[in-house]
Design a protein around this nucleic acid. Structure first.
Lengths: 316, 316
DNA sequence: GAACCATGGGTTCAATTATATCCATCTGTT
DNA sequence: AACAGATGGATATAATTGAACCCATGGTTC
């Protein structure tokens, strides 16, 4: 009849509860703790683990006297199992939305500035369409794991590495070097090299200083800048620049008002900086959850117009 | 003690076998057929489905007299379930490789031309590292679903939409408009508009004709070309161009030899065409499977140098 | 510092409980 | 009548628990 023979058989002997037990052991760091968390007898958890071990014919836990550690294979498997359990959770969401409608809560992570843009530009329309939906913006520079439930979507700027997430490229933005007009009168900046000893207001990331790259026609310039003030907030950098404390290199989308009102002026307007791509990331199954899809859709239709300076490439 | 309370509980009553049964029903189009495929009593399959339905409180199947159809929710859920089952399968692979080592088979889909590039440039080194690994290249212009096991990796050119796959951007290539020197002597092409009535050798995709876009400084030109010969193979287009049958617009990476030997010459060399991005796509968990990871790693380290014309952006 | 025990975590085992599966039967449609 | 799916009861299978068991560590004591 049918040619496709190789279908999954082993799943039968592999239970979701066993996967959950093992994953909980990995999370909690011990069988007793996992059993407490799951509200079941520790013998059951122990059995689940051994069951998986014999199923895979691989040792998943290094048994110490008072503790267990994951073996390398155990770690790999746990990582996948975590994803699987998260995907299974989504099944519930998808089904529930069918009867209850789009409601509940969507949690979105983004940098504070970008989060502001997203919240002001996107949230009103989403809320108008889905009144029962609660949108939670979690502004943070540190990107979280997103494998544990809690965050549904994350806007990320620039490169990142995570196999387990879908990344939707929304466009990109440029940065602009700006300072207050008064400051520029005292500290004229004609070329990128003038920045070396200038008071640059840098974003304080993991390490001090920053590298700013400029390009003009074929000329490229890469400057290691530093300055008296470094802050872990672009918003504060913006205020500092307006107050005339130095040069700031800020995303274009933050500068609209300040440039119009004349509070800030561009430096080196002929020199362009590369495009910072903006990605929207989420777990693979998330797009099938209607309330998450609503936000994704809104973001992918409306945001490109807001941040894209040049159309870079077809979106994924 | 711990703050993190919301952990999955429902999984307990949700069995992988039930998911498998439902998915098989969806695949086979009926409960009896599914039961036959799974080698179990049809009553069991029926129970599994009703069990899921009551678990989710949603109807998954439209019951007809002699057939069942998936409800919209059923389709969504089945789509996710399919992914989940595939991910569960990967668990076995990951575990097995720990004891057996990297072996087995990796199936890779790509267009015939690109497949050739991949096979010649990538396969030797991979095979040298993993002698027990069998690499299967499946050249095909039609991209398959990749949700059903069978294809582990797929190289894709240009845009695509599939939430369920991870896309790794490897770089991009440009196309070049070429023809034989003899042909060009008879049919000089000075500007893109000259192509309108020229005998263009087009790739026969889903619909006839093609749109070629050219750019020179700020000038942009978009030409709807057509011609006497349309073939669903870039390789044959290359041969036709060499034989002097017309103009072909081919990927740069195919043209090395023909341009060097003088068999082909560039047309409109001042006009550039956009970069065609190349993606490597795979199921989310696939990278954790060592034998697949070996190919991904090789591709992502070696291919960018082969196809990238300009570094577009940091890879994901 | 060596011997000692008490503690906490992991495993094993048997009994109980729950669950899945099958076969036969029933219902409804074509 | 024939086929596809649903239902129900009997049986076998599997999951869960709680108590007993191990065993390494850490602290205590001498």
């Amino acid at each position: 009849m049918d040619i496709i023979e190789p279908m999954v058989q082993d799943i039968r002997t592999l239970g979701l509860p066993a996967l959950l037990s093992f994953h909980t052991v990995a999370r909690e760091g011990g069988i007793s703790a996992a059993a407490a968390r799951l509200g079941m007898a520790k013998s059951g958890v122990s059995r689940h683990v051994t069951q998986l071990e014999s199923h895979f014919s691989v040792r998943l836990l290094e048994r110490g006297a008072r503790s267990v550690r994951l073996t390398p294979v155990g770690q790999k498997l746990d990582d996948r199992i975590r994803s699987i359990l998260a995907e299974v959770d989504l099944l519930e969401d998808i089904a529930r939305e069918e009867s209850v409608g789009v409601s509940g809560q969507v949690t979105i992570a983004a940098t504070p500035e970008f989060g502001g843009l997203v919240a002001t530009e996107l949230f009103p329309e989403i809320r108008a369409r889905h009144p029962d939906l609660t949108l939670v913006m979690r502004p943070d520079y540190a990107f979280e794991d997103m494998q544990d439930p809690g965050t549904d979507l994350a806007f990320r700027v620039g490169t990142f590495k995570d196999d387990r997430l879908i990344a939707l490229e929304l466009g990109g933005f440029r940065r602009a070097l700006v300072a207050s007009p008064a400051f520029l009168k005292d500290h004229p900046v004609q070329a990128p090299n003038d920045l070396v000893n200038a008071p640059c207001l840098t974003f304080r990331g993991d390490r001090p200083g920053a590298t700013w790259r400029f390009q003009k026609d074929q000329a490229r310039s890469q400057i290691e800048v530093d300055g008296p003030i470094a802050v872990r907030s672009f918003g504060i950098l913006l205020q500092l620049a307006i107050a005339g404390h130095g040069l700031a290199n800020l995303p274009e989308f933050m500068l609209g008002d300040a440039l119009k009102s004349g509070a800030l002026a561009r430096c080196l307007p002929d020199w362009s900086q590369g495009v910072n791509p903006v990605f929207l990331t989420f777990r693979p199954g998330a797009r099938k959850v209607a309330r998450v899809a609503a936000v994704i859709e809104q973001a992918s239709t409306k945001l490109p117009g807001l941040v894209t300076v040049e159309t870079a490439r077809p979106h994924v």
